[in-house]
Design a protein around this nucleic acid. Structure first.
Lengths: 312, 312
DNA sequence: TTGAAAGCGCTAACAA
DNA sequence: TTGTTAGCGCTTTCAA
């Protein structure tokens, strides 16, 4: 059987047979061959051929396992930053599972990205990054690293703000409801928090480790309620935890903030922050500003060719 | 000045000068030229050249203006579906602003996508889609269209479920706290809801239109509280609205569900559904199942070349 | 130390 | 009605 020429095949495959007077026989032959071969068009080639202007691609890696509801806010921050800075970038988001960043950063993704922003990587993910020489500019958000540029909120300040609420409200019996710290920022926040309380002569901090989920917070509170004397103020390391904690207090008939004050470090669930019932004090994290900083940073890395100083 | 050959330039630009014994003069020349020209590597070309196997690209368009916290859940549903079905796809998410889908669906994006899933398009966005012949397989999620395949939850069933709660709990004075319906499904839900109440001889439904935000819900409830007699059960069209409503009742000292029952159509804010305080009845939407259906549908469209039946 | 040529998959222009 | 050729931007192989 005679093979068809590339152009004929191209025409048929794009559904232009009629317009270009391709015979039904040829059309049928091509479509059948495509089907048996499981043909899928290669979009890179199409794009290349199209002569559309080249647009740098920025890939945002997002931990889809835990940080679900924040993505929207962060993304919005990025978008706004792109617009307000007049950048022209092709933004794409890739979800990944905690501890499995490696599997998501395929050779392909690396190859199609001019710059990469990695959000909320776990220690294991960071380890992968540090141990490999990736050929693309990378910025880590909310994490610390010697190897890559990072964008961090001021974790000390966050710890301080939480402690300040305690002190301002003249609380004396603090409790800490936290998940296992899975990134350095959490440790910094907690340490600063403790340090400042210590400086104010409060050293006895009841600390409970729970899952970073509402049910974790719920169960944590049940545990806390067994202690005597009861704490008079609880700091939750995330609003996930706070959500469950509120519910537990409600179910147990304990009034917030009258009987017991609740403070949360808010990861961007703005609705929760404003409309939680009853109100809790939230140390709010500047998500949008951080997104903006990430974009600015990666943008610099992309522009700045000197970053491609020889690797060996 | 003599031009350098492509290969030399390529070597320098990838930071391999040292390894490949490029003279410092040449290296400097190339880097400077790149800088003044504002060179950015074309990743399509790199990918093409790399001989990595071709991976079909699925683009998920997400309305980033309103539906922020759902994205995580939906994305997770997609991811899980990819894994469990053994698909190999390159998934990318593109945010867009309501009513501005057109601007986000650039020629470039169309050209780099083998298939597109569009979520939560507004009527205006749908209009754009219907009026244009896009050359890529498209699936609409949560919307109705004659032109494109759609994936919808059973909106009648949702309306029915909400009505059933009213009836089961023997309520007689219903109120509806809804945002302006911006997609057909909302209308279907509301109509079914009313129909069923009517069938049960409840025809007097107090209806208030508010913003689809917590503060919308808050203000809506304040309005409702002015009415006599008070409704005994309120249906909120989204959990955004419900969140504000709860807060309003709390602030006004009205007990839920004892004094007044609250029902919400939940858009996937699972935390809220489980841990709202006090509890509200939520008609939960099957987000993950929908995501799976979207992926299956677009996958079929991509595979099924007969879909490229002649356009003219 | 640098350059020339080929080819990744695709499509447009032109030729047959 | 179909085929040939060139070229999108890149990297690799081989030659100079």
């Amino acid at each position: 059987m005679k093979a068809n020429s590339p152009s004929t095949v191209s025409i048929v495959l794009r559904g232009l047979s009629e317009k270009r007077n391709i015979s039904d026989a040829t059309k049928k032959k091509v479509l059948e061959a495509a089907k048996t071969l499981g043909y899928t068009p290669n979009m890179q080639s199409k794009l290349l051929r199209s002569n559309l202007p080249n647009l740098p691609v920025i890939t945002l890696f997002w931990d889809s396992t835990t940080r679900q509801y924040i993505l929207g806010s962060f993304l919005k921050g990025i978008q706004d930053s792109i617009v307000s800075n007049g950048f022209t970038y092709d933004l794409q988001v890739k979800p990944y599972a905690v501890d499995h960043l490696e599997e998501s950063m395929t050779a392909r993704t690396l190859m199609e990205s001019n710059g990469i922003i990695i959000c909320n990587a776990s220690d294991k993910d960071i380890e992968f990054l540090e141990n490999n020489d990736l050929s693309v500019p990378i910025v880590l958000y909310n994490r610390y690293s010697d190897k890559y540029p990072t964008v961090n909120m001021n974790d000390k300040e966050i710890g301080k703000m939480a402690a300040d609420v305690f002190i301002r409200h003249e609380k004396t019996r603090p409790a800490l409801l936290t998940s296992v710290p899975n990134f350095e920022g959490m440790v910094i926040r907690e340490n600063t928090f403790k340090d400042i309380l210590n400086q104010n002569h409060i050293s006895d901090i009841y600390r409970i480790v729970v899952d970073d989920t509402p049910s974790g917070g719920y169960m944590g509170v049940l545990e806390i309620l067994k202690s005597k004397p009861l704490p008079d103020c609880i700091l939750c390391s995330s609003d996930n935890i706070a959500l469950g904690a509120i519910k537990a207090f409600y179910d147990k008939g304990i009034k917030i903030p009258e009987q017991l004050e609740l403070i949360s470090i808010g990861n961007g669930n703005r609705d929760l922050e404003e409309y939680s019932t009853p109100s809790l004090s939230v140390v709010s994290l500047p998500l949008e500003a951080m997104a903006d900083a990430c974009l600015t940073r990666i943008s610099r890395a992309i522009t700045d060719l000197s970053l491609v100083s020889d690797s060996r």
